[in-house]
Structures are given as structure tokens and as C-alpha cells.
Design a protein around this nucleic acid. Structure first.
Length: 214
DNA sequence: CGGCTGATCGTG
DNA sequence: ACGATCAGCCGA
């Protein structure tokens, strides 16, 4: 398959809303133990820095955890949520300006990626099955919801693309293993906007239309 | 399909 | 103590 051009610093060195909208249709690429996975981004959210009540950096909370968001545009920010799932962001803007884009969902870019995603999701599910002393699922016998909801959520995206704490604070402009390339053409009319998910504590910021999806 | 709940742990 | 969540289960 043809390798598309990867996105450079200038792409990410813009505000978080522009980067979020522009990321739709682009391809997230990650080398995993099962091979290289490619996912077309279909849903993202903007987190606009220290003045954004929905952001981990709200009020200037620059801590060990949020540090990657303060790094230059194109830096990954992966954190653990609810003690068991990872969420993946890409920092926007420049050093010291902690805007970021949360990657909420992807669809497999090709058949091989779909195969790898399913397998990775299956492995994750089976770890829980094991703990419950239940039969592991197989490709033939697994919940139908797996294929239907392969990577349509921030946690599922990370499971399907093997994104973990080990992938935190990576410069995705330079890394050979973790980056974003050009993908499919997206017309402005294809981009929808809605409220961000899961930030009810963010008061008025919870109503901003900073979630973008195809 | 919509609503509810338990799981599980790093961070501040 | 608290999440930028998910799967499973329930009822409609």
C-alpha cells in the first residue's frame, strides 16, 4: 500500500480548534507488536489550555501528568482514565501553550489494520474474561459489539491501536513509530460540531461546541 | 437504543 | 476522592 506524506510541525503548531478540525480524515499510524496499525480519525475534541475549564491544564495546572501538553505541537499526551483506560491527545500550538486534541475515534484505514485492531481489542477483553474465570473469546465467538464498536471511543481507540503510557510524550513529528499522515479529503460541510463528552464539571465550557466529527 | 452500574488506579 | 470510559445488563 502507498505510504502517504506525514504531517509536520507546521500542521500542529496552530490553535487547538484548527488542528482538531484538520485532523479529521487524517491517518494515525502506530507500530504495534502485531504490526503497523492505521486509523482514519473520525472524531476529535479540542482542549484549549489554561483558560478552558474542561482541560487538565485549567488554571495553569502544569504537573508531571499534564507536562506533555505544554510541549511543542505534535507531542503525544497519553493518560490513564478511571484507573483502566488510556486516552490519547496530540498537543497543538507551541512550547508553553497547552492546547491539545483528544482523539476520540478512528476507523481502520485498510483491511490489515482492521484485523489488527480486532485482535488487540480481543486480547484486552480476554484479560478481563480471565480474571472473571470465564472462557476467552475467539475471533469466531466474540461479542458482536466488538466489530460494531471497534474504535469508536477514546479508550477503545487506544486499545485498538495499542496506545499505552509508553506512548506518552512522544514527538509525533519525528518518531518513526508513532505519527499522523495525510488521509482522505474532507470537505468543510462534512465536519459536524457538538458538545464535548464527559466533562459535566466544566460548567459553561461543557457547552462549547468543541467536539468535531465526520 | 437508552439508562444504570461496577471496575480499578495514578494523580494531586 | 476523583475522573476527557467501557462492557454488561436491564427494560422499552
Amino acid at each position: 500500500m502507498s505510504e502517504k506524506r506525514r504531517l509536520g510541525r507546521e500542521f500542529f503548531a496552530r490553535d487547538g480548534i484548527t488542528v482538531a478540525r484538520e485532523l479529521l480524515g487524517k491517518t494515525l499510524v502506530h507500530r504495534t507488536p502485531l504490526g503497523t496499525v492505521r486509523g482514519i480519525l473520525t472524531e476529535v475534541e479540542s482542549y484549549m489550555g489554561e483558560t478552558d475549564k474542561g482541560s487538565h491544564t485549567y488554571g495553569g495546572r502544569r504537573t508531571a501528568r499534564t507536562e506533555p501538553m505544554y510541549h511543542q505541537g505534535g507531542t503525544s499526551y497519553v493518560y490513564l482514565i478511571y484507573g483502566m483506560y488510556s486516552c490519547m491527545n496530540i498537543a497543538a500550538m507551541t512550547e508553553g501553550n497547552p492546547q491539545a486534541v483528544l482523539l476520540r475515534s478512528v476507523m481502520p484505514a485498510d483491511r490489515e489494520s482492521g484485523r489488527i485492531m480486532l485482535q488487540l481489542r480481543l486480547e484486552e477483553l480476554n484479560r478481563k474474561q480471565l480474571k472473571r474465570e470465564k472462557e476467552p473469546y475467539t475471533l469466531e465467538h466474540c461479542p458482536a459489539s466488538l466489530k460494531k464498536h471497534l474504535a469508536d471511543g477514546p479508550g477503545k481507540l487506544c486499545m485498538a491501536m495499542h496506545i499505552t503510557a509508553a506512548d506518552n510524550d512522544i514527538d509525533m513529528v519525528e518518531s518513526p513509530d508513532f505519527y499522523v499522515t495525510e488521509g482522505m479529503e474532507v470537505k468543510p460541510s462534512q465536519i459536524h460540531a457538538g458538545k464535548r463528552i464527559g466533562i459535566d464539571y466544566a460548567e459553561e465550557a461543557a457547552d462549547y461546541l468543541w467536539r468535531f466529527y465526520l
